[in-house]
Design a protein around this nucleic acid. Structure first.
Lengths: 259, 259
DNA sequence: CGCGACGTTGACCTACCTCAATTGGCGTGG
DNA sequence: CCACGCCAATTGAGGTAGGTCAACGTCGCG
């Protein structure tokens, strides 16, 4: 289910207005592959994808690069970047990308006006972590065919699953698929050819078509439950005690304040 | 730096008493490789490692298994499990293990009495996610030698770094190292032999000795900053607005309550 | 029309896997 | 104290998934 729908469902109408207004105010565009936040920097803003896909990646000193996350329109990204003193990974555009860049002060402000937002942030972080784990299992245990199939299943489901007639955007180049799966561009190419052959999957001009989703899912051992779709409410309720405790904190923080 | 020290530094003395009392009350032991929480279950408690190591893993239908996280004494684990409606991965003992099992109600109670705890939970989740990303880069991009070296560097640093004279526990069998790195037990064995040869590293009887840490770190491209050691305070301060917003939420939640 | 980025293909190579047998350490029971 | 059994570590031989290198095709865009 598209992330936008979650926002629409969980924000009150008033909150939604504030949220959309904020996004509209702070738009910023990036060309293909441009860095938005670079590893090592001190993060100062939160990002929301407006159009296009964003990627998070880590890079080894010799240039090898691993994509560790993908973000679709509507998704909040960089909450962890935002929270930490030094970024441990980079955020970049996959292709032409529009994001809303919300500076620290405005995030605080927004949170005041949209109390439900905190829950959504919390849920969004949790899902991101769950996806990390699934990708780790992919890269560590699945073979090339399974890995590529799995990535395609995931991106299809995250864009709305079957409701789109098994067609959706897929903005990564084969080279970027390689970076996300820990394979080589060449081998990704051969793997895609094989998927085309064995279950009719089609990937051309940044569009993906999966005629028999079940076939692809079964190749990939894909089980969408790790995406925790529809659980935003559960997470919010379960996390609530954490937040209540924090705010009832009358004790002065033993922690020095860092700007 | 051992996680315990973080707790000691960030909790007030009074909070520390409540925390320790709670841990003492709820101890539970598990034999080697026993599951604590299994994927698919509905999680009901939070776990704190008291002695031994815990592992999180994911398993594909055909049995292939990937270890996606390791937890040392003092660490909180299963916060995400705790928050979600259905576990997307399993939690198990690495070897003989003692944990504190804190049921949902008691977590809420504890959070009331230890306001600083919420921050520590939050920081702990963030670090776990950062480690996920680093492992993904490892499994996706590093070769066998680098991967095994990296794991050893990480576990050494997480146990107190150089202050222990470059000796520390290392409770994984070579088979478990294989599950964590996406390699084969046989190849892990050969890789360890090579590390022994090329930088004197020694691993025997669950003890690890790294005579020249720098040499190992340089093989692994290991940069400890992803562990965000010492940043618990920063994270706490940066995350604060999130928590404040949540609690000031006067609007009734649009979300149904799940038990 | 031509350039540049991306996709595609072939030939060859190697890091890591698989299978299988052996060794060593250690707890248990006789 | 020894013998047995179990589990982890080790070693060897041979196989393969995926990597590397290099060339060529194709498509969109200025």
């Amino acid at each position: 289910m598209p992330f936008r729908e979650i926002l629409n469902r969980l924000l009150t109408p008033g909150e939604r207005v504030s949220w959309e207004a904020c996004l509209a105010r702070s738009g910023r565009d990036f060309p293909k592959a441009a860095d938005i936040v670079r590893e090592g920097e001190k993060p100062q803003a939160l990002y929301v994808v407006l159009a296009g896909w964003a990627q998070k990646y880590k890079q080894l000193p010799d240039g090898r690069r691993q994509i560790v996350g993908l973000f679709l329109p509507g998704q909040i990204c960089g909450l962890d970047l935002f929270t930490v003193a030094r970024c441990d990974h980079s955020l970049a555009a996959v292709r032409q990308l529009s994001v809303a860049e919300i500076p620290r002060a405005e995030v605080c402000d927004l949170l005041q006006r949209c109390p439900s937002l905190a829950r959504i942030f919390c849920w969004s972080e949790l899902v991101e972590t769950a996806v990390h784990r699934e990708w780790m299992a992919s890269v560590g245990q699945r073979n090339a065919l399974e890995r590529v199939a799995h990535l395609m299943c995931e991106m299809a489901v995250r864009q709305g699953g079957h409701r789109t007639n098994n067609r959706c955007d897929f903005l990564l180049t084969q080279g970027q698929i390689a970076e996300a799966t820990g394979l080589t561009p060449v081998h990704v190419n051969r793997t895609i050819r094989e998927l085309r052959r064995c279950c009719g999957m089609e990937l051309r001009q940044r569009r993906l078509h999966i005629p028999r989703f079940d076939a692809l899912a079964s190749i990939a051992c894909f089980d969408a439950r790790y995406l925790h779709i529809g659980e935003a409410g559960t997470v919010a309720d379960h996390a609530r005690p954490l937040f209540d405790a924090w705010s009832s904190d009358g004790v002065p923080s033993p922690i020095l304040h860092h700007t």
